Measured scan of single mutants.
Amino acid sequence: KLATQLLVDLAEGCHTHHFNSLLDIIEKVMARSLSPPPELEERDVAAYSASLEDVKTAVLGLLVILQTKLYTLPASHATRVYEMLVSHIQLHYKHSYTLPIASSIRLQAFDFLLLLRADSLHRLGLPNKDGVVRFSPYCVCDYMEPERGSEKKTSGPLSPPTGPPGPAPAGPAVRLGSVPYSLLFRVLLQCLKQESDWKVLKLVLGRLPESLRYKVLIFTSPCSVDQLCSALCSMLSGPKTLERLRGAPEGFSRTDLHLAVVPVLTALISYHNYLDKTKQREMVYCLEQGLIHRCASQCVVALSICSVEMPDIIIKALPVLVVKLTHISATASMAVPLLEFLSTLARLPHLYRNFAAEQYASVFAISLPYTNPSKFNQYIVCLAHHVIAMWFIRCRLPFRKDFVPFITKGLRSNVLLSFDDTPEKDSFRARSTSLNERPKSLRIARPPKQGLNNSPPVKEFKESSAAEAFRCRSISVSEHVVRSRIQTSLTSASLGSADENSVAQADDSLKN
């Protein structure tokens, strides 16, 4: 292990032709098999893994070397290190390495390699500790012929580059190093199909959405987006994914797998022009299946994007999809995704031109529960009313008269009656009930004795009459309010007539 670390330190600071010789020695160290011998017992696995620490030291050392060589000349050094790393990870899946030390190597290698970024000039870069990406002036992410390196360097940008540029090249004859992302992409596909350690798979799935944002990485080298989509959909639809995973937390289920895969599918929607129609349908189907899991909100957001990006695919699945959405409970976490999906859909009339009455009724059935102001915040309630109004205007004229009683009944049950079921009123009724029952229970537990009763009969009569009056008032709060309003209006009217009579009498006395 110490000798391997010494080789790594020497290679990191070497800029001459001896660098390749040092890498040859490190490569021989990495070539050791990580498969346990067949006769190895389970209690000896930890000791055997400790004997392979030099392999881990070599791989982690290459990660440090690549981070240094990416910004220094010659660029061919970075290319050689990158290829060695990718080849080593491929061996893991070729020979099915399952030892804990092998999983640790893959975890740290993917953690580093999935941080690679590219700008519009195809320059590769890595983020620093502050998250700012520094791009290399010597390494690009696409394949290029050595003699055409300078031509590639002087080509115009596709868009303004992001991030601070690296140091300027030493001279005009500098050759750019090619670090094609397709090599890593193929290893990522192998990981999605064969990885057995949940920690490694979770890391890859968590980092892929951010990497897919940099389309330069994908399009400048032959990366098959179709295969990526197929691998992701197979993970969700195939039963073998959960069987092969180990190291998963207790209670791990298909729902947890959906939570990890759906963000990658959402990021892949922007590549729909490069996906086969069959793959697009598979993607939409997987998102529909996710509606029954805890990732339902993410799936609804993804389907909203699909309705804009892939209208030809979503239009066929939309009638059944809208009916499925009615089975989702009206909760605060689902309110905004569902209502925004319906609001977006209302502005795309070509998608729902074939809707029948059942689909329009489903839209109103989804939106009406969110009009309850005692359960949802003001934004959700306003958005629900907006969706109902928009869809009522957009639905066909023959359907409107049939939906009017349905909508008014839903609004009455969710908006008007919600004020009668407020917690304050319920607590008031509970308190009044307890007050009504309390005197009775006290009389049963403690019967009054005439000799020891010091309270006069008049006081008892007053208290009983007050309790009886309170019971009468607490029967119905709404009736009490109505009666008080009527009494107030009658009182004001009587006072007004009394004032008029007094004024008339005063005038008569003055005349006399």
Results as ranks from 00 to 15, higher is better:
Ser49Cys: 08
Ala50Met: 10
Ala50Asn: 13
Ala50Phe: 07
Leu52Asn: 11
Glu53Leu: 07
Glu53Val: 07
Asp54Asn: 01
Asp54Phe: 03
Val55Asp: 01
Val55Glu: 00
Lys56Phe: 05
Thr57Val: 10
Thr57Asp: 05
Thr57Glu: 12
Ala58Tyr: 00
Ala58Ser: 04
Val59Trp: 01
Leu60Lys: 13
Leu63Asp: 02
Leu66Cys: 03
Lys69Gln: 04
Lys69Cys: 02
Lys69Leu: 01
Lys69His: 05
Leu70Glu: 01
Tyr71Asp: 02
Thr72Trp: 14
Thr72Tyr: 06
Leu73Thr: 10
Leu73Ser: 12
Pro74Cys: 02
His77Val: 01
His77Asn: 06
Val81His: 00
Val81Glu: 00
Glu83Gly: 07
Glu83Arg: 12
Met84Thr: 06
Met84Gly: 03
Met84Leu: 12
Ser87Asn: 12
Ile89Gly: 00
Ile89Glu: 00
Gln90Glu: 12
Leu91Gly: 11
Ser96Val: 09
Tyr97Ala: 02
Thr98Arg: 10
Leu99His: 06
Leu99Thr: 09
Leu99Lys: 01
Ala102Ile: 01
Ala102Val: 01
Ser103Arg: 07
Ser103Leu: 04
Ser104Pro: 02
Ser104Lys: 11
Arg106His: 00
Ala109Thr: 13
Leu115Val: 06
Leu115Gln: 10
Leu116Ser: 02
Arg117His: 03
Arg117Leu: 01
Ala118Asn: 03
Ala118Val: 06
Ser120His: 09
Leu121Asn: 10
Leu121Met: 11
Leu121Trp: 11
His122Arg: 05
Arg123Thr: 02
Leu126Gln: 03
Leu126Arg: 04
Leu126Tyr: 13
Asn128Gly: 09
Lys129Leu: 09
Asp130Ile: 05
Asp130Thr: 06
Gly131His: 05
Gly131Ile: 02
Gly131Pro: 02
Gly131Ser: 05
Phe135Pro: 04
Val140Pro: 02
Val140Lys: 07
Cys141Gln: 02
Cys141Met: 02
Asp142Ile: 02
Asp142Thr: 09
Tyr143Arg: 07
Met144Gln: 08
Glu145Met: 11
Glu147Ala: 13
Glu147His: 12
Gly149Cys: 13
Ser150Ala: 09
Ser150Arg: 12
Glu151Asn: 12
Glu151Val: 08
Glu151Gly: 10
Lys152Gln: 13
Lys153Val: 13
Lys153Ile: 12
Thr154Leu: 12
Ser155Gly: 12
Gly156Cys: 09
Pro157Asp: 12
Pro157Phe: 10
Pro157Val: 12
Pro157Ser: 12
Pro157Ala: 12
Leu158Cys: 14
Ser159Gln: 10
Pro160Cys: 13
Pro160Ile: 12
Gly163Leu: 11
Pro164Ser: 12
Pro164Gly: 11
Pro165Ser: 04
Gly166His: 12
Gly166Asn: 11
Ala173Met: 13
Gly177Ile: 04
Ser178Glu: 05
Ser178Cys: 12
Pro180Gly: 03
Ser182Ile: 04
Ser182Cys: 12
Leu183Arg: 12
Leu184Asn: 02
Phe185Ser: 02
Phe185Trp: 08
Phe185Cys: 02
Arg186Met: 06
Val187Asn: 04
Val187Gly: 04
Val187Thr: 05
Leu189His: 03
Gln190Pro: 01
Cys191Asp: 01
Lys193Met: 12
Gln194Leu: 08
Ser196Ile: 10
Ser196Ala: 09
Ser196Lys: 07
Ser196Thr: 11
Asp197Ala: 03
Trp198His: 02
Trp198Phe: 04
Lys199Arg: 13
Val200Leu: 02
Val200His: 02
Leu201Glu: 00
Lys202Ala: 06
Lys202Thr: 04
Val204Ser: 00
Leu205Gln: 00
Gly206Pro: 01
Arg207Asn: 04
Pro209Glu: 08
Pro209Ser: 12
Glu210Asp: 08
Glu210Thr: 10
Ser211Asp: 01
Arg213Gln: 12
Arg213His: 06
Leu217Val: 03
Leu217Tyr: 02
Leu217Ala: 04
Ile218Thr: 05
Ile218Cys: 04
Ile218Lys: 02
Phe219Met: 11
Thr220Ala: 05
Ser221Asn: 03
Ser221Leu: 02
Ser221Tyr: 02
Pro222Ile: 02
Cys223Leu: 03
Cys223Pro: 02
Val225Gly: 01
Val225His: 02
Val225Ser: 02
Asp226Val: 04
Asp226Tyr: 02
Gln227Val: 07
Leu228Asp: 00
Ser230Asp: 13
Ala231Ile: 09
Cys233Arg: 02
Ser234Ala: 13
Ser234Gly: 13
Met235Asn: 01
Leu236Thr: 05
Leu236Trp: 06
Ser237Asp: 09
Ser237Gly: 06
Gly238Trp: 08
Gly238Cys: 13
Lys240His: 12
Thr241Val: 11
Leu242Val: 14
Leu242Glu: 08
Arg244His: 05
Arg244Val: 04
Leu245Phe: 13
Arg246Ile: 08
Arg246Trp: 05
Pro249Lys: 07
Pro249Asp: 09
Pro249Val: 04
Glu250Gln: 11
Gly251Cys: 05
Gly251Tyr: 05
Phe252Val: 08
